[in-house]
Computed example of a mutant assay.
Amino acid sequence: MNLPNKSLSGKLGKAIIYMIITFLGLITLLPLLNIIAISMSGSGAVTANAVGIIPVNFTLEPYRMLVDDPQFWRSFGISILRVVFSLVLNMILIVLMAYPLSKSNSEFKGRKIYMGILIFAMLFNGGMIPTYLVVRNLGLLNSIWSLVLPGAVPVFSVILIMNFFRGIPKSLEEAAIIDGATQMQVLLKIFLPISVPSLATVALFSIVGNWNDFFSGLIYMTRVSNYPLMTYIQSLTIDIQAMIQQGIDSTNLSQLMGVSDRNLNAAKIVVSSIPLILIYPFLQKYFITGIVVGSVKE
Rank of each mutant, 00 (worst) to 15 (best):
7 S>G: 13
10 G>N: 12
11 K>W: 13
12 L>G: 05
14 K>P: 14
14 K>Q: 13
14 K>A: 12
15 A>W: 12
26 L>Y: 03
26 L>Q: 11
27 I>S: 14
30 L>F: 13
30 L>V: 15
33 L>D: 08
39 S>F: 06
39 S>V: 08
49 N>S: 04
53 I>S: 03
53 I>K: 01
60 L>V: 12
60 L>C: 10
63 Y>Q: 12
65 M>R: 06
68 D>G: 10
68 D>T: 14
70 P>T: 05
70 P>C: 09
70 P>E: 01
71 Q>T: 12
74 R>Q: 05
74 R>C: 02
76 F>C: 11
76 F>N: 11
82 R>Y: 00
83 V>W: 00
84 V>F: 01
90 N>P: 09
93 L>C: 02
94 I>N: 00
96 L>P: 13
97 M>V: 13
98 A>N: 03
98 A>H: 04
103 K>F: 15
107 E>A: 14
108 F>A: 02
109 K>S: 13
114 Y>H: 06
124 F>W: 06
124 F>S: 01
136 R>Y: 04
137 N>T: 08
147 L>C: 00
152 A>H: 00
154 P>E: 00
157 S>G: 04
160 L>E: 03
160 L>G: 05
164 F>D: 01
165 F>Y: 01
165 F>K: 01
167 G>D: 08
170 K>R: 12
177 I>S: 07
179 D>G: 07
185 Q>E: 10
187 L>P: 03
189 K>G: 02
189 K>C: 14
190 I>F: 11
190 I>Y: 06
190 I>V: 13
194 I>L: 15
201 T>F: 05
201 T>H: 05
203 A>Y: 08
206 S>G: 04
208 V>I: 06
209 G>R: 03
209 G>Q: 04
211 W>F: 09
213 D>S: 04
215 F>V: 14
218 L>P: 11
221 M>R: 10
223 R>D: 09
224 V>D: 09
227 Y>P: 07
228 P>C: 02
229 L>G: 10
235 S>G: 11
241 Q>A: 15
244 I>C: 06
249 D>R: 08
250 S>F: 13
254 S>T: 10
254 S>V: 13
254 S>I: 10
254 S>G: 14
254 S>Q: 14
258 G>H: 05
266 A>P: 06
268 K>D: 12
272 S>C: 07
273 S>F: 03
276 L>R: 04
291 I>G: 14
293 V>F: 12
293 V>I: 15
296 V>M: 15
